[in-house]
Design a protein around this nucleic acid. Structure first.
Lengths: 182, 182
DNA sequence: ACTAAACCGTGAAGCTGTAGACGGGTCAAT
DNA sequence: ATTGACCCGTCTACAGCTTCACGGTTTAGT
């Protein structure tokens, strides 16, 4: 049987956090001592281990509760979180761009704020990539991270329609269509 | 002279937000009507435009206040925020990996929505790039668009320090240091 | 002149997840 | 029995808003 601060230390959490979990009904100690102290059992410890891993994945208390209640099969919650993370990363990247632009305006640099399609292609060519290699690269990109592939294309200033065309072409292995490079 | 909801609508904010900014002393209306209504001037509008852009970059109320107070030259706040964004993106990518593993355990494979350093390197390798080619590529990137190069490295979840190391190495033509790949 | 809708102000409460303060309980050593 | 160190439970606060409630104001329409 662990007391609250002991258990907290064991998991690198703060005492307040465990108390909060108790209040939320996410992890209530299986017992109390004579003095009213929270006493956590081994079973509580295991549950906490699961909680911690879900929380590390950024799931909310509520989502964590759902997952613990529903056994294992709840993929939807995880998938949803994955989508949210994607959105958040994209939002942060947008902020990066904003900040970069602000800093450049102040320091007066003349360099392009972001790379366009031509520059990008030129850089890859300088590194020895030929058309076929770029095709392979796009295909890999599409296979491993379709969303990121899309964002990347847009970041080069490529329009939504052309981006979709490139992706379709990548997915098909570059068989058809006249998308030339990049 | 605008009234609070009008101004809010103009900037896509809610009435509450403007009232909150007023309470915080971030943007107080330059006047009040006979009935005590907040009246915003053109100057207020300009100030709000600045506030909105800073907030879009993820700066806190407090940081925004500092920037507005200190005129222009306050780059430190922006740089600090840039570093924080990098941390956050890295944290989110770690969560992506965790979630992807969880889902993979439960079913088949899942695809990430944003690319990290390892994935990026793997894609370039798949397209036939070797270490030397990557070196050339980094050097080109640094030469043509240093700022974008920096942003790009950060977007892969690479830390500020390592990013600077890679850039220095790129600029020097990859002569020294044990920066391995990417 | 009057009414209804749409606006305004203030104030309080709520949200998430955590940190910290407060006063009092517990425990080993004296 | 008593000191001190440490622990406990409970309560409050934080960002950055939003929502709600209550009551006054303006405005358009009749």
């Amino acid at each position: 049987m662990y007391r609250v601060s002991q258990l907290a230390a064991k998991f690198g959490l703060s005492r307040s956090t465990l108390i909060y979990y108790d209040q939320e009904g996410l992890l209530s100690p299986s017992g109390r001592s004579g003095a009213g102290y929270r006493l956590y059992s081994e079973r509580d410890l295991e549950r906490l281990a699961a909680i911690v891993s879900f929380r590390k994945a950024g799931l909310s208390i509520e989502e964590t509760r759902v997952l613990l209640a529903s056994g294992e099969g709840e993929q939807s919650v995880l998938r949803k979180r994955l989508a949210v993370i994607g959105d958040q990363i994209r939002a942060l990247q947008a902020q990066q761009h904003l900040l970069a632009r602000m800093l450049r305006v102040q320091s007066g640099g003349e360099l392009p704020e972001s790379v366009d399609k031509e520059t990008w292609v030129a850089m890859l060519r300088a590194a020895g990539m030929d058309d076929e290699a770029m095709e392979t690269w796009h295909a890999e990109f599409e296979r491993r991270a379709p969303q990121a592939h899309h964002s990347f294309l847009l970041s080069l200033g490529i329009g939504e329609q052309e981006a979709q065309a490139i992706r379709a072409w990548s997915a098909a292995g570059g068989k058809e269509g006249a998308v030339r490079e990049g």
